[in-house]
């Protein structure tokens, strides 16, 4: 991207205080606080239905918060919504481009709407298509586009006015690994030109690859916030997976794991498998001895990198899938992981 006014690094690109949004009975967002520093990539990590998209939509003026406040570069999203719209680009979870038109036509129409002249719009469209490797497909209707091409076009459309803040809602969900890596490269390049990016993702790995800071969001509330390293060390570098031979022993085995490793464990839904965060690898030897003394036979043992499930387990005390059934939130749990 050519030229860009780079905001002061001291500026906050996003400041949100106590954002609340209800859909009927259901509280989708329950008091989200966010601070995103200009010029950084910020990841909003959480499972489906956690309130990520609703939060982004409120920040992008697409949805009116029921309570709380949000400022984009100091401008109120409700009172100065039209100003905010001049500062942001939004790439939605579902491609926000026109299916029945071609890539060029899409970009020209968005450019015209943003106030570019006819000639400027054509030039801008050609330039963006070139940059996103879509020149060959420029004239084809989007119906024939692959998922990856559509996402790239979507992102290109968000960059027409070179907005200083870009919202990306699950930019790589449903993409194959190769296209996903291309998308990551594109996002990194954006920030190197001075843009701020706020992205949502379900994948810890994605947040890990891209984000400077992460907020973990669950059931409409931010349950942890920090740099990737801070978050990871709260989870443990990796996690221990144990499959035991006799599923009747699972209760005893789980108790032993929690006692020896001094962590909370999780039993997988298919049964017979215990997962626990592993903060200290030395303790595993102690655990194996303790299990043998208890007469519990292992079928399988493996060590894996933390998954989103484990981040959740550690931070919230419940797994991703248990969301609906567990007890409502208490703030101390948030404090716990920060301590």
């Amino acid at each position: 991207m050519i030229h860009r006014t780079i905001p002061n690094n001291g500026d906050w690109a996003v400041e949100a205080r106590g954002l609340i949004k209800n859909f009927g009975e259901n509280r989708a967002v329950n008091g989200v606080n966010l601070n995103v520093r200009a010029g950084t990539i910020y990841g909003l990590l959480g499972p489906n239905g956690a309130g990520k998209t609703t939060t982004i939509r409120m920040l992008a003026t697409l949805l009116r918060p029921d309570a709380g406040s949000a400022h984009i570069f100091g401008h109120d999203v409700m009172k100065e919504s039209q100003v905010v719209r001049q500062l942001i680009g939004v790439t939605g979870q579902y491609a926000s481009v026109d299916e029945s038109l071609s890539a060029t036509e899409n970009l020209v129409i968005f450019s015209r709407l943003l106030g570019l002249s006819r000639a400027e719009s054509k030039r801008k469209a050609a330039e963006l298509l070139e940059e996103f490797g879509l020149t060959e497909a420029a004239k084809r209707p989007l119906k024939n586009f692959s998922g990856g091409m559509r996402r790239r076009l979507d992102l290109a459309a968000s960059l027409i006015s070179q907005p200083p803040l870009i919202f990306l809602d699950e930019p790589t969900t449903g993409l194959d690994p190769r296209t996903r890596n291309q998308m990551w490269d594109t996002i990194r390049r954006l920030v190197s030109t001075g843009s701020t990016v706020l992205l949502t993702t379900q994948y810890l790995q994605e947040a890990d690859e891209l984000a400077d800071r992460i907020a973990v969001i669950d059931r409409g509330i931010v349950v942890a916030e920090g740099t990737v390293d801070e978050l990871k060390s709260s989870v443990g570098r990796s996690s221990l997976h144990l499959r035991i031979e006799n599923s009747l022993d699972i209760g005893v085995a789980r108790h032993t794991v929690e006692r020896v490793l001094n962590v909370k464990s999780n039993v997988s839904s298919e049964g017979g498998k215990i997962t626990a965060p592993m903060a200290d690898a030395d303790r595993v030897a102690d655990l194996l001895i303790a299990l043998r003394e208890a007469g519990i036979h292992l079928a399988e043992l493996s060590v894996q990198k933390p998954t989103l499930d484990e981040v959740f387990l550690t931070i919230t005390g419940h797994g991703v899938n248990e969301n609906a059934s567990s007890a409502p939130y208490e703030m101390p749990e948030v404090e716990e992981i920060r301590g």
Binding site: A60, T61, L62, S96, V97, L113, L114
Partner: peptide, 16 residues
């Protein structure tokens, strides 16, 4: 369709 989300997020006249 998703494209109307983009229209809403653009600094254009709401009636357009």
């Amino acid at each position: 369709k998703g494209v109307f989300d983009r229209f809403k997020s653009l600094p254009i006249a709401r009636i357009a």
